[in-house]
C-alpha cells in the first residue's frame, strides 16, 4: 500500500509580527515550519503505517511518500517528513513552476503520483495556515478521478478501505470508502509525533535524502504546456475587519448577571425583563 502525503510550509508564526495599523506583516526571522494541517496529514499516514506494522497483515507493507503542495524554496519540510517516519520524499523543482497555484499543482501532483507508480491513498491538509487555501485536495481528487473526503478528524485504513471520522455541523459522521481516495485532514485533528532524533540527524546530513524531480519533465510527459498556468491572481492583502471591543461588567455577581441578561435581550431584540422576571 502506498500513501502519498502532500506537505507545504508556512512562515513560523513566532518569527513574525503583525502590525494592523501599518497594514503589514513584519518578518523578523524568516523560518518556515510544516503547515499545521499538513503535519496532521503526515501523522494520519504514519498512524496507518504503524497500525499495519503492528502486525494485522505484516505482508502488506505501507510506504509513505511525501510530495510538496506547491513550489517550495527548499526541501526542508520533506526532510522533516523523512525524519518523522516517511519512507520517501520527492522535491519538485523546475522552470516556470514558481507561480504554480493549487489548480496547477493538482495537475503536477496527479502526474507525480502516476510517476511513483500510483498510490492507494493521498492525504493532505484541509486548509493552509497562512492563506486559508483548501482547494488542493479536492482538485487533486478531481484530476485523479478519485473520490474525496474532506475535513477529516480521524483516518483508519485497512483491507482496501478507509474509515474516516469527519466533522459535520455540530457533530461527527463516519464515512467509509474504497481505496483509492483523497483525504484532507483538519488542523489540530491529531497530535503529531516528534521526529526521531537519530533519523533527523541522518536525514539532514545526507544530501541525497530527498529525491529531486524536474517539473518540466513531468509536464512535458503527460500534460499540456498550459497546465502550469495559475488560475489564481493575487491582487493584494488586507486584514479582516477589527473585532468589536467587549464591555467589562462590574458590580456584585447578581448585578453583573442582570446587566448581561439585559444586554443579551437588547441585542436579540427582546423586550426588557419585567420586575417579576427579575
Amino acid at each position: 500500500m502506498r500513501i502519498v502525503v502532500i506537505l507545504g510550509q508556512v512562515l513560523d508564526p513566532s518569527g513574525i509580527v503583525i502590525k494592523r495599523r501599518a497594514g503589514r506583516i513584519f518578518v523578523n526571522r524568516e523560518e518556515y515550519v510544516l503547515q499545521p494541517a499538513d503535519r496532521c496529514a503526515l501523522e494520519a499516514a504514519l498512524r496507518i503505517k504503524n497500525a499495519a506494522l503492528a502486525g494485522l497483515r505484516p505482508s502488506q507493507g505501507v510506504e509513505v511518500v511525501a510530495l510538496p503542495r506547491g513550489p517550495l524554496p527548499d526541501d526542508d519540510v520533506l526532510r522533516q517528513a523523512l525524519a518523522t517516519g516517511a519512507d520517501r520524499a520527492v522535491y519538485l523543482t523546475g522552470e516556470g513552476f514558481d507561480g504554480a497555484d493549487d489548480a496547477a499543482m493538482a495537475r503536477v501532483l496527479a502526474v507525480a503520483v502516476e510517476r511513483l507508480g500510483g498510490a492507494d491513498l493521498v492525504i493532505t491538509g484541509a486548509t493552509t495556515f497562512d492563506t486559508g487555501q483548501g482547494q488542493l485536495g479536492p482538485r487533486l481528487a478531481e484530476t485523479l478521478g478519485w473520490p474525496q473526503i474532506v475535513g477529516a478528524w480521524q483516518v483508519e485504513a485497512a483491507d482496501g478501505r478507509v474509515r474516516v471520522v469527519r466533522q459535520e455541523g455540530s457533530g461527527y459522521v463516519v464515512v467509509n470508502a474504497d481505496l483509492p481516495v483523497v483525504i484532507t485532514v483538519l488542523p489540530g485533528a491529531l497530535k503529531p509525533r516528534y521526529p526521531d532524533g537519530a533519523r533527523l540527524i541522518n536525514v539532514y546530513r545526507a544530501e541525497d535524502a530527498v529525491e529531486k524531480w524536474d517539473v518540466s519533465d513531468l509536464v512535458s510527459d503527460l500534460v499540456d504546456e498550459a497546465a502550469l498556468q495559475p488560475l489564481l491572481e493575487k491582487r493584494g492583502q488586507d486584514f479582516p475587519p477589527e473585532r468589536e471591543r467587549g464591555v467589562r461588567l462590574s458590580g456584585t455577581p447578581e448585578e453583573m448577571a442582570q446587566a448581561l441578561a439585559d444586554t443579551l435581550r437588547q441585542r436579540l431584540g427582546r423586550r426588557p425583563a419585567t420586575a417579576r422576571e427579575r
Binding site: V33, L200, R205
Partner: peptide, 10 residues
C-alpha cells in the same frame, strides 16, 4: 549545520 538547526527546532 542543517541537522543542528533541525535539532534545535525539535
Amino acid at each position: 549545520a542543517p541537522e543542528h538547526i533541525a535539532l534545535r527546532r525539535l
